[in-house]
Simulated scan of single mutants.
Amino acid sequence: MSNPITEQPSKYDNLEKMDVLELLSNINAEDQTVPLAIEKALPQIRDFVTAVVPKMELGGRLFYIGAGTSGRLGVLDASECPPTFGVSDDHIIGLIAGGDVALRKAVENAEDDVNQAWKDLEEFKISEKDVLLGIAASGSTPYVVGGIEDAKKNGVLTGGITCNKNSLLSREADFPMELIVGPEFVTGSTRMKAGTAQKLVLNMISTSIMIQLGKVKGNKMVDMQLSNKKLVERGTKMIMDELNIDADLARLLLKKYKSVRKTIDLYKDRLNTNELN
């Protein structure tokens, strides 16, 4: 790929001569194009989610691999699923080239090793029951493309998120998702629009999967972990609204059962039992 879209020159020039409001306005204008680019990829995203859910219903896991910003976004999305949906931290697993130290600091040449991703995945005993999603704005990152190639050789279902058309990643992945957001405001700075697009799509993927797996009731996070006061209060409000009871009783029940879903289900069961008797 001689001139990938993510490396093409910005539509803007002489950025250093712009005042602050002009910079912010132009960045904002570019950011507004991201959801429209994602909209065009919705059928691709749907096909991937539809393929992942049956795997996870049978106990499979979803892995993310990426380097730099792409890797950080994958790790972020994976880390937010346990507190949000009450799943274990091995449901969705994010791996970044260079290991966890790369979350804070760039690790030299980490993304250039075509074999390292599979070595990292083997530590988690990845198998054909699982799914691997490669994330790379360029679509050519060796760590990601190599991981996808090795996964396919071992019977693992694969997906790819990229911001270039017909990239190596798109050609290798079973389910390519191409988010064509165009050149960046700062030429080649894919932490900007490309990163925003990747973040939005990862939100869509993990949230849709969790809803399909029954981790949301109505529109509420009934399986969320009650890890702080704010979440306890949110859980209390959910119970009040669902069961039509006052705050004191809702809080007492939540303290007893330690789960919004369990509280609602057991309280309703008790009501039904009393009605039958």
Rank of each mutant, 00 (worst) to 15 (best):
E16D: 10
E16V: 02
M18E: 06
M18N: 04
M18R: 03
D19G: 08
D19F: 08
V20P: 00
V20D: 14
V20L: 11
L21H: 07
L23F: 14
S25I: 00
S25A: 15
I27G: 03
A29C: 03
E30V: 13
D31Y: 05
D31G: 15
D31R: 09
T33S: 06
V34R: 04
V34C: 10
V34L: 08
P35T: 01
L36W: 05
L36G: 14
L36E: 08
A37H: 11
I38G: 02
K40L: 12
A41P: 05
A41E: 03
Q44N: 10
I45S: 00
D47A: 15
D47K: 14
F48R: 01
F48A: 12
T50D: 13
T50E: 15
T50R: 08
V52S: 15
V53A: 08
P54N: 03
K55I: 05
K55Q: 14
M56I: 14
M56K: 00
E57C: 15
E57D: 06
L58G: 12
G59T: 05
G59Q: 01
G59M: 04
G60W: 07
G60P: 14
G60F: 09
R61W: 10
L62K: 02
L62G: 08
L62N: 03
L62A: 03
L62E: 01
F63I: 09
F63T: 07
F63S: 11
Y64G: 07
Y64N: 13
Y64W: 11
Y64D: 12
I65N: 09
I65V: 11
G66R: 10
A67D: 13
T69S: 12
T69F: 10
T69Q: 06
G71P: 12
G71F: 10
G71Q: 12
R72H: 11
